[in-house]
């Protein structure tokens, strides 16, 4: 028996007064500014204060670049067969399932056809959220098909890269995709159909060593990590600290490896202008 009787009157916390704040604000990694998410989205996911370009998904990319955000996807139903039955700490097949659930895609790229300032184009956008945008047999095939679509329709090709490189879980099969895509690009080149490669954060490894660097124009967003070997691998090899800004777009521009660094806001006008130049009036 208790000496004191406690009043059983807990504070009433009805849901009405709760204000949901999580997910409404984003902190910029670069300038530490707290940004209202809606402001960020209205600004194409570029920090309004310091111009840091946030990573965006493949669908937003297509929406931003194609007229009225309208596009038709194709070859969206290819799925990896896990040829090596690869298992590390987790089975590759379950990684695929998880990535598919998270992104709603079957692999790390979307092929689309749409109009860019009135001109029909073929656009392939990579999805970094799908196993680091890595390239296995499906990504290789889908991109090759985009190239073939472009060759078949004579519509200019634009590929937006965002990828860590070849997909290790498909081993040498991933490596062979580099050869396949590059061979297809050789044919597109012979047909004199324009190909613009847009490199976004991050573009490394096998993607840099193939289609991302093979555009008639290779342009990048500001501050994107672009390189062949990852910075950690290089640090381990040369055993010294890498300079500030190493492997960023501006670094590559300075070393003559990029044709232009273009702000996300200027991307569409830039591509449109370049296509004006490259497409001959019929």
């Amino acid at each position: 028996m208790a000496w004191f009787k406690r009043q059983s009157g807990e504070l009433d916390t009805s849901g009405e007064r709760k204000v949901r704040t999580e997910g409404l604000w984003v902190k910029c990694d670069s300038c530490r500014q707290i940004i209202w998410k809606k402001d960020l989205e209205d600004n194409l996911n570029v920090c309004p204060k310091c111009d840091k370009h946030f990573r965006i998904d493949a669908r937003s990319r297509l929406t931003q670049l194609l007229d009225e955000g309208q596009y038709d996807t194709f070859d969206a139903n290819l799925v990896s067969t896990d040829p090596l039955k690869f298992v590390d700490l987790k089975a590759y097949s379950s990684r695929l399932k998880q990535a598919s659930k998270d992104t709603g895609l079957t692999d790390a790229v979307i092929n689309a056809q749409g109009k860019l300032n009135g001109r029909p184009v073929v656009m392939s956008a990579m999805e970094y959220a799908f196993i680091g945008g890595s390239m296995g047999a499906v990504v290789g095939e889908v991109i090759t098909r985009a190239i073939e679509k472009s060759a078949g329709t004579k519509q200019p090709l634009i590929i937006i890269s965002a990828s860590g490189g070849a997909r290790m879980m498909e081993g040498v099969i991933s490596l062979m995709q580099l050869a396949k895509i590059s061979a297809a690009l050789a044919r597109l080149d012979e047909l004199k159909i324009p190909y613009i490669s847009v490199l976004t954060d991050p573009t490394t490894g096998g993607v840099t060593a193939s289609f991302a660097m093979l555009g008639d124009l290779n342009i990048a967003e500001p501050g994107a990590l672009i390189g062949f070997a990852g910075p950690r691998v290089i640090e381990q090899t040369i055993r010294q600290k890498l300079p500030q800004g190493f492997q960023r777009s501006e670094f590559l521009l300075e070393h003559g490896m990029l044709d232009a660094v273009v702000h996300r806001r200027e991307l569409k006008p830039y591509i449109s202008r370049a296509l004006d130049f490259m497409v001959q009036a019929a």
Binding site: L178, A186, A209, F211, M213, L214, A229, I234, L242, H255
Partner: peptide
């Protein structure tokens, strides 16, 4: 460092094509 500065990725890519 030097390999990246001089475009390792680009050099390989062009060879493939």
């Amino acid at each position: 460092l030097g390999a990246e500065e001089r475009g390792q990725g680009e050099a390989i890519a062009v060879n493939l094509r």
